[in-house]
Design a protein around this nucleic acid. Structure first.
Lengths: 198, 198, 198, 198
DNA sequence: GATGAATGAGTATTCATTCAT
DNA sequence: TATGAATGAATACTCATTCAT
């Protein structure tokens, strides 16, 4: 029971931290805020995580759906769009984790975390798909689009993108992705195992 | 190092503020930092600007080349790319001002500033060019790309984009923009009055 | 000098605050002064009281002997005089708390506190005793005298009043009070249960 | 013309200082406030008066109607009441100057000024009138009343006193003053040279 | 092991005052 | 002489973190 509580408290702290860091960024979030949200004493944060920074690292780690990189290759871009647009990021204050972390990008550590996350999640996966010369550049350009869509949706909240679902974006995405990667890409994810070309 | 020179001191403060706010964001920047960078007493910031927030507003205002929205329409997207990629943003720590402001987006005020900047600079101008249905959405998608490219270049610093010049991106941009807007767009800006279609 | 003792620290802070606020008023007293007097870190003031203003409120609250309004009615004025003249206000720097608060009367909040204190302690109680017309005015006039005596004693420190004991004032007080209230008032408080008319 | 302006500026500064110090007390008033009120640069205060403190001294000096101590002796108390109740203290923010200075009584200098003012204006004059033993004490008691009335009127603003005119207080004052001083005192001031006993 | 008292460096901001022009 | 730029110490208050119990 002791251990159970400890784990539960840890989890609550992580959850609260995720939300606060996402919404307010690293600097504007105090360890006391997080402790209060979790209903525990602030000291526990130091006992459990060592420091505010380490809590931040753990709270923002692995912010990517596990199945993003699995499934048919021609649906990869469509899955990415769904991750950015349709995924439920309630835990991160409703914003894409990358956007949330961007808010803390004043700190070199966070910046490196973002760098790694973007490369692992988007650039590297897309580069593997790109044909011909300039593969890296074209993969990055497509990655930039994913990130940009996330930003405009949640931070800027431009009217059309903020309301759009992945399906609304599908046709445009498919065209562009196909053009950039030099191979046919599907705009939507086939839920039953089939991919539907747009 | 002039002394007793209001305008010079003001300018130095603005310059230092621009750099600090861009690199570290609003919260991580202290007025004392800025004052120290400028070699003046921190009190002057309040004399000249009223408050840290007002200094931030002034330091991040009008962060757009004046001629962006002027010139041939078919070169608009190309000019945007040059603004993001080739423009000398040394004053903003080498990063696109939008990226810099994004770092302060924990504050609702800054967020609204970003919103306005993105709409005025990108979305509205592009919407006017887009043909057919979904004009708003397609304009936003293209805007998202511009913003995303800026982010990946400076925050994430992905290898290809970080080194790329606008000319390297031109072919890809032109294709995508033409497709999204439904009208021919040039990939490069014709310096001599001619536009070269890609 | 106990350590790690919340209540003792709180009490020491309140005591020091009472003294400082009484002697110097709100503005001229800094939280650092109070902390230094108490031998603790200034941060604790905010931990325990929230703000300087809240500390002020608590430090100056309930500055009236509990038994003032109890006892024989004809001795009420005499008890008031004793409160002003004989009571040991060491905690308030030797001055009547009203005088101390008067020193902070630049702030509307403090002014309202004074207003309430004067009305609750003096005016209302005396009005209930006054007979005939003009009861309110006569009650206020007598209240004004009590307050004025407190001021002259401690702020102005006029020679006779500063040295006087309640017993010295008794004969004059009794005459005036009897005249103003329209009913016989005793000048002294009968310690053995008897009241002696002067 | 130069000199004229200088004098006019000095006068405006004194006037503004009087008002601010009276309303807010010494600490809550800044030299910049006063300068702004007067429409001049704050530096002039130091040129003309040397320091904030010296300005305070000059601004609060001689705050007593010149004719208070002149006229028939039996009307002295009545004149005092008029000074406290009917006099137009607009220059002092509508409050009796003593009350205003009381607000700054945190500072020993101001306290001594108050002391002197009260003694010169009230106590000494009344002591000269008092007959028999205890003259000093009875003079002080009557002075305390005057001061207390001023306080309750303006700071506490008790309902009856705040609205009262000197004439309303006259009957009560006359009775008490006569009793305390041991000689007949008039309650009102005879404007045509006659005194009317109440 | 866990609570919370304590700390000291940090924050933005305002002050009276001086000094250069 | 007079303007206003500059100063540095002070203000209330918050921070992440430590240490005693």
């Amino acid at each position: 029971m002791q251990k159970r509580d400890r784990e539960a408290t840890r989890a609550r702290l992580l959850e609260a931290a995720r939300l606060r860091f996402a919404r307010q960024g690293y600097d504007a979030t105090s360890v006391r805020d997080i402790a209060r949200d979790s209903g525990v004493d602030a000291t526990l944060i130091f006992r459990y995580f060592g420091s505010k920074k380490q809590l931040f690292d753990q709270a923002t780690a692995a912010a990517r759906p596990a199945d993003l990189l699995e499934g048919p290759q021609e649906e990869l871009v469509a899955r990415m769009v769904r991750t950015v647009v349709d995924h439920d990021w309630t835990e991160y204050g409703g914003e894409h984790p990358l956007v949330a972390m961007l808010r803390s990008s004043a700190h070199e550590d966070a910046r490196q975390r973002i760098r790694k996350e973007v490369c692992d999640t988007y650039v590297n996966a897309l580069r593997d798909l790109a044909e011909g010369e300039d593969a890296e550049l074209r993969a990055e350009l497509l990655s930039a689009w994913m990130v940009g869509i996330g930003i405009l949706r949640s931070v800027v909240a431009t009217p059309a993108l903020a309301e759009a679902r992945a399906a609304d974006l599908a046709p445009h995405i498919a065209t562009v992705a196909t053009g950039l990667l030099g191979r046919p890409m599907s705009g939507t994810v086939d839920q039953r195992g089939e991919s539907s070309q747009t």
